[in-house]
């Protein structure tokens, strides 16, 4: 009996973003994740590993180990990330945090520039997470990185203006961050485009939670955003950034070396990070910011399989 394959006729697609010196392309899909039988995924989901501009304070040993010799040297650390095969480097300007070194805009911009010069993959630059401070430092960083086509964030409802203006002026793209609410996310995308930044230079961050820690909320928001994008809602049709590493490595299941009933930490921790990532990949995530190189390797092996054709 011949089955009439059920194909959705999507009317629209996700914007395609171009990053970095060699023009890495991200997004652009015209179907739900990995349903190659009814549309295109011209670019596979991409990965970045995080680099801190100072030694991370709360990373467990298993996470520090692959970078043990470079934790105090962001340039060397970034090079190592490229060696591990990341599509991008995600530099987190932790030292600017008022609770840490409260570093100035000029100091962090210098580091960002040095890192960008040392690598040939696109650079993602992340602020310290304090909205006000990020609103001050990121424009200076954007200027220092002129021409490098970086992805800079996070812009929030409170600080997007200064960041968007600089991102636009110096030729970068922006990460727009709003907490787990499809309307807030849309609203921020609207505000940013109203400042003249085109949609193909915005990626949104729905503030994901890790496996076991609220992952289902972000999962459903991504699915809804993708449905919206494919049915013509332009303000939802931007690539989705998933801060997987940051969330997964907060989880006890990843961090705790000694819980016999959960099995040895090595596989458990890696799987906590990769499963968080693969779950978002099947919901519509595009840019995956991870922390452990082994998780990235596993995630990529999964994506290799998911990208195989499945036309009927």
């Amino acid at each position: 009996m011949a089955v009439t394959i059920a194909k959705e006729r999507w009317t629209s697609k996700v914007a395609e973003m171009t990053l970095g010196p060699k023009g890495l392309k991200v997004g652009g899909e015209s179907t739900l994740p990995f349903l190659h039988f009814e549309g295109e995924m011209p670019n596979r989901p991409v990965t970045a590993l995080e680099v801190f501009d100072m030694e991370p304070q709360d990373w467990p040993d298993i996470l520090k180990e692959p970078f043990a010799d470079v934790l105090n040297d962001p340039v060397a650390w970034a090079k190592k990330v490229v060696e591990y095969g990341a599509d991008m480097v995600a530099l987190r300007l932790m030292s600017a945090h008022p609770d840490w070194k409260d570093a100035s805009a000029d100091e962090v911009a210098k580091t960002a520039k040095a890192v960008a010069e040392a690598i040939d993959v696109p650079l993602i630059v992340l602020g310290c997470g304090v909205e006000e401070k990020d609103g001050q430092i990121l424009p200076v960083v954007a200027e220092a990185l002129e021409g490098k086509k970086c992805l800079i964030g996070c812009a929030t409802a409170d600080n997007y203006k200064s960041i968007t203006a600089a991102v636009n002026g110096y030729g970068h793209s922006v990460i727009a961050s709003s907490p787990l609410d499809i309307n807030l996310c849309k609203q921020l995308n609207i505000l940013i485009t109203e400042m003249g930044l085109p949609l193909d230079r915005i990626a949104f961050d729905p503030l994901v939670g890790a496996l076991g820690y609220g992952i289902e909320y972000a999962y459903s928001i991504m699915e809804r955003a993708r449905m919206g994008a494919l049915t013509g809602d332009k303000m939802l049709a931007t690539p989705i950034v998933c801060f997987v590493g940051m969330e997964a490595w907060k989880a006890k299941e990843a961090k705790d070396p000694d819980v016999p009933e959960w099995g040895p930490q090595a596989d458990r921790a890696i799987l906590w990070e990769t499963t968080t990532a693969t779950t978002f990949a099947i919901a519509g995530g595009t840019i995956f910011i991870l922390r452990h190189p082994e998780s990235m390797k596993r995630f990529n092996a999964f994506i290799d399989e998911a990208m195989k054709p499945n036309a009927y």
Binding site: L211, G212, E253, G263, A266, R268, L271
Partner: peptide, 18 residues
């Protein structure tokens, strides 16, 4: 049948089926 491989699956099931 190793817990480290099963716990993520069980956890995701709990999350997705909430």
């Amino acid at each position: 049948a190793e817990p480290q491989h099963i716990l993520p699956v069980i956890t995701l099931r709990l999350n997705v089926y909430t």
